[in-house]
Design a protein around this nucleic acid. Structure first.
Lengths: 111, 111
DNA sequence: CCGTATCCTGGAGGATACTG
DNA sequence: CAGTATCCTCCAGGATACGG
């Protein structure tokens, strides 16, 4: 049994999935792999996610210390950038591994 | 846009998550990393999953060609073993990466 | 530009009882 | 031993409209 951030997980694998699982978190992290992105830039990369869901997932990732949100202007139009924290960087090998297998599967096991 | 097994994914990362996402699939695959296990052996490793859910997840993994189910006896008590397919083996680097990060997080970022 | 507010739905997963 | 069969709950995520 593993405990992390006040939650219990029955396996080390489920702990990780608790942090990056769900439909969108790995996609967000994948798009942040090369540096910061603005909210609308993320939306552009992920055309099929709704605003509400993107917003919620970003907030969860921020609360978990995986990404950080930086606001550059105080008056509208706001400029906000999202980027990986140092802790979030430690997840990059996992995210990369996940992304690479997706490419591998499409290229070698297409139907 | 990526297409795999008749489903569409907006990102290579979401394709992989479509195959191994959810609460239990990575846990099952993690426990099968060293070889075959019987149904009740899996249950022993995963005491908090319900029978129905375990059964459903195993069936999904089998349908996706990731694990294979082998029946050794025709009369009760049945002997059934689950193991990775060759295709499932290609997921092991991903599963290992996920599992190792879980251990890393607990050891280095505990609260 | 960067979100939040509301309302809603589908399906993942749980509890429990039963079967070949 | 290895599951199914039912029934049920809960919440991630979607649709859409509006706000700082």
């Amino acid at each position: 049994m593993y405990t992390f951030k006040g939650k219990e997980y029955p396996c080390c694998a489920s702990l990780t999935m608790g942090m990056i699982g769900g439909k969108w978190k790995t996609v967000i992290l994948f798009h942040l792999r090369n540096g910061k992105l603005r909210y609308n830039e993320l939306r552009k990369e992920m055309p099929t996610v709704t605003e509400r869901t993107l917003s919620l997932q970003l907030k969860t990732l921020e609360e978990d210390g995986i990404i950080k949100r930086t606001v550059y202007t105080s008056k509208p139009p706001l400029k906000v950038e999202y980027s990986l924290t140092d802790f979030g960087q430690t997840l990059m090998p996992v995210v990369t591994s996940i992304a690479e297998w997706g490419v591998y599967a499409v290229e070698n096991h297409a139907d």
